[in-house]
Design a binder for these strands. Structure first.
Length: 411
DNA sequence: TCTGGGGTCCTAGGACCC
DNA sequence: TCTGGGGTCCTAGGACCC
């Protein structure tokens, strides 16, 4: 019995990265089979809408995520645009993650459609990593009707790169000894953290592939990448051995909106950010967090973006408190922002509501709002989201039983 | 008719405390 | 009278990811 469980065989590619294929689009196609084979995208149909997800038939026409919808329409005049149903996708996501949990205990969800799995412990029961990957993909296909891809490696970063190469509907396990050969010819942009800026900077010093990056003196890389250099080199070698962790908790939570037509009336801006503050406060209460700071984000038509933040005396999840601060920030900035293309409200520095002592701010004007808004939450839960809203945010156009969320007014 | 909405992480300066 | 530096919080902005 020389090999004990504690002696983990490092060279087994035991880290899997599972990535759902075209997740939002695949769900819509599954739910409406008449869309099968068509260039389907999920996203906003408005003038400033963009593609959130595209089916593979759409991709063969050159359509990509984050592409302006106008461009996508030009590429595919027969494009089918399906509005996003985020709550539905989140629910399906939970089903996927629950299914993974029946096979692999060690897992870390990293986004709505991706998870890392450490399958070293599951090998005795389910076989080598490639077999586990095949099992997971088959079950997701049979039980949820959705395609997925899996990459495997000794390294998280390489597993993620491998899953991208396995798409669509495939799997690719990279043995430890083949890691360098696999990475060398790939563009540096496959490394997480290397975005358009870094790609341009590396291109200036003649570095385009991962292999080239490893041949350049670290001092030259440091001038381009700064303090990230050591991490990038580690990832480029496929040498990261970060284990799986669980996200501790959310760091921030917010909402923002770009309008098809710029807002020019300061009162209208004020009304919109008031609704957003209420919406964010509702999200805080639903997730049982209090926020210490609230941020107002504004973008003018030329793309210039500013953020202005304000910190509360006591952490809060009350819409009235968020509104006070965010409106005050707006009043300070409105003179310099005659046209508003985007506005957003984000709550930061969250803490769990349960462990934060409740502050009854009896001297504040908003005293009592906590109770009122809690009652409104309950009423909403019973009668639906359309039943209640702040009086001042209702205008004649939306009063007729419409919901008061920002989305509701621009279907 | 150029570019969404949800986020995370990092840097950097100034205030303030010790 | 003149003086250092560490730690932490707040604020603003930017790169990046899905």
């Amino acid at each position: 019995m020389a090999e004990q469980d504690t002696q983990v065989p490092e060279e087994v590619p035991g880290i899997l990265h599972l990535d759902m294929d075209a997740f939002f689009a695949s769900i819509e196609i599954r739910d409406d089979p008449s869309l099968q084979g068509l260039p389907v995208v999920v996203g906003g149909a408005g003038a400033r809408g963009v593609v959130a997800a595209s089916s593979y038939p759409a991709r063969t026409r050159g359509i990509r995520s984050a592409m302006p919808m106008a461009t996508a329409r030009r590429l595919a005049p027969d494009l089918v645009i399906v509005p996003a149903r985020i709550d539905h996708y989140r629910a399906v996501s939970q089903q996927v993650m629950a299914l993974l949990g029946t096979v692999v205990a060690e897992r870390e969800q990293i986004s709505v459609d991706e998870a890392f799995l450490d399958v070293r412990g599951a090998r005795r029961l389910f076989g080598p990593p490639a077999q586990i990957a095949a099992l997971l993909r088959r079950r997701i296909r049979e039980e949820l009707g959705l395609p997925s891809s899996v990459g495997g490696s000794v390294s998280r970063a390489v597993a993620k790169i491998a899953s991208a190469h396995a798409k669509p509907d495939g799997q690719l396990i990279i043995p430890a000894e083949r890691t360098a050969a696999f990475l060398a010819p790939l563009p540096v942009s496959v490394i997480s953290g290397i975005g358009p800026r870094a790609v341009a900077g590396l291109g200036d010093i003649g570095v385009r592939t991962v292999g080239q990056l490893l041949e350049v003196p670290v001092s030259a890389l440091r001038r381009v990448l700064g303090p990230r250099t050591d991490d990038v080199v580690l990832l480029a070698r496929g040498a990261d051995r970060t284990g799986l962790g669980r996200r501790v908790r959310d760091k921030s939570l917010g909402t923002e909106r770009t309008w098809d037509e710029d807002l020019t009336d300061p009162r209208e801006v004020r009304r919109r950010i008031t609704m957003m503050a209420d919406d964010v406060a509702r999200q805080l209460r639903a997730s049982e967090f209090l926020a210490r700071t609230v941020v107002l984000k504004l973008r003018s038509p030329d793309g210039a973006t500013i953020s202005r933040s304000s910190t509360f005396e006591h952490p809060t999840a009350t819409g009235e408190r968020l509104r006070e601060h965010v409106v005050a920030l707006w009043e300070r900035e409105r003179a310099g922002m005659p046209r508003v293309r985007l506005a957003g409200v984000r709550a930061m520095h969250l803490e769990p509501a349960a462990t934060t002592p409740v502050q009854h701010e009896l001297t504040a004007r908003s005293a009592g709002w906590e109770d009122i808004e809690a009652a409104m939450d309950q009423a909403r839960a019973r009668f639906g989201t359309a039943s209640l809203g702040r009086g001042s945010t209702l205008d004649p156009l939306t009063r007729q039983g419409q919901a008061t969320s920002p989305d509701a007014e621009f279907p």
